[in-house]
Amino acid sequence: MTPLLEIEDLHARVGDKEIIKGFNLTINEGEVHAVMGPNGAGKSTLSYVLTGKPGYEITSGSVRFKGKDLTAMSTEERAREGIFLCMQYPVEIPGVPTATFLKHAVNAVRKHQNLPEMDTFEFLKLVREEGQNLGIGNEMIKRPVNVGFSGGEKKRLETLQMSILKPDLSILDEADSGLDIDALKVVAGGVNALRDGKRSMLVITHYQRLLNYIVPDYVHIFADGHIVKSGDKNLALELEEKGYADFVREK
């Protein structure tokens, strides 16, 4: 088993507030890990710390990705190395057509991999192929990024980006928030299509429901800034029955 992401005794803060406190987790190639925690536990904070968002400061501990020190890399370097964050609240960018944004992203990653830039024709073909299953057509990618998109459209666009960029590690932050069951199936289908035994995922969620569609190998319960209990997918079911209070108290 080759470790892809190794987080050791991570402490991180936002402003003056320490949110991540002694977090440990190793994700090997091909594994899907779910991190479940109550609102305000610091789940989104963890995803931002891993992607290097300005303002999220690591105070101690280490994070390695493919054996390299992740904390020394900029946000864009992490992305090009193969980390993708499917955001809980995708950002609207007025004035920038979705297609333009996607093309810049694809070519940034390709450049890093020493691949030639994609021209418009190749790029549109790729979007057509990957977009088909997600119900994303030409019309949608002409609109400005996420502007006026419904909750479902936003999450489908996140999934499309993941399908196109083919990251080694996908971090999904509340991928199901604001989705009805049909939309959830579409998004989960896109995510599952990327599972090939090599790619890994960190599925962050409050609810167990998502894990019926994206079935994890491991489940971790996250409270008060660190993991309080780990297990297999059955832990999620147990949590659903008992609620978070029991686990948080166990600590």
Binding site: T51, K53, P54, S74, T75, E76, R78, A79, R80, F84, L85, M87, P90, V91, I93, V96, T100, F101, H104, A105, A108, V109, H112, Q161, L165
Partner: peptide, 17 residues
């Protein structure tokens, strides 16, 4: 941040905006 998290470099992201 959103653009950079997709691999677009900071200067390029600024230019796009």
């Amino acid at each position: 941040f959103y653009m950079r998290s997709r691999g677009i470099d900071e200067d390029e992201a600024r230019q796009i905006l």
